[in-house]
């Protein structure tokens, strides 16, 4: 890496580097942005959840959507893997099943960007401990 000769160079460099530490800032305020949880247990990974997750992370960045993507354990809907839970700020979390790249694309474009519901929603069949408290 050579010298930074001007302020414009510094700015350009910052833009390029920003994405590398962005994640650390975003994770401080997860409730302000779209949160996506990808189930990543053995069963999910076998059904391709890692590819789905990578696709989602890359696409969100390409399309400039502010979101935090985290992995989580098995959600229990193993028949519908890969499963993805999406929480749009101010809305209830929704779980989508059979999320391949095509479905992921649809979720990003239609649900996250425009708020339209798309096919493939799995009804919640349990409550978590946090809610019952």
């Amino acid at each position: 890496m050579g010298k930074i000769k001007t302020l414009a160079d510094l700015r350009k460099m910052r833009e390029k580097l920003k994405s590398e530490t962005d994640l650390r800032d975003k994770s401080e305020h997860p409730e302000d942005m779209v949160q996506i949880k990808v189930a990543m247990a053995t069963c999910c990974i076998a059904s391709g959840s890692r590819e789905t997750m990578n696709y989602i992370v890359d696409e969100l960045e390409k399309r400039n959507v502010d979101a935090v993507v985290t992995q989580t354990g098995c959600m229990g809907y193993c028949y519908a893997e890969p499963t993805v839970e999406v929480t749009v700020p101010g809305k209830e979390p929704i779980v989508f099943g059979y999320v391949d790249e095509k479905k992921a694309n649809e979720i990003i474009e239609r649900y996250i960007k425009n708020g339209e519901l798309v096919e493939g929603i799995i009804p919640m069949n349990y409550r978590s401990i946090e809610e019952t408290k």
């Binding site: 302020l7 510094l10 460099m13 910052r14 580097l17 920003k18 590398e20 530490t21 962005d22 800032d25």
Partner: peptide, 17 residues
């Protein structure tokens, strides 16, 4: 690089220019 990514040396640039 990580410092620059988090607005490092931006203040110096701003003051100097």
């Amino acid at each position: 690089d990580e410092y620059i990514a988090r607005d490092g040396y931006k203040a110096l640039g701003k003051v100097l220019s």
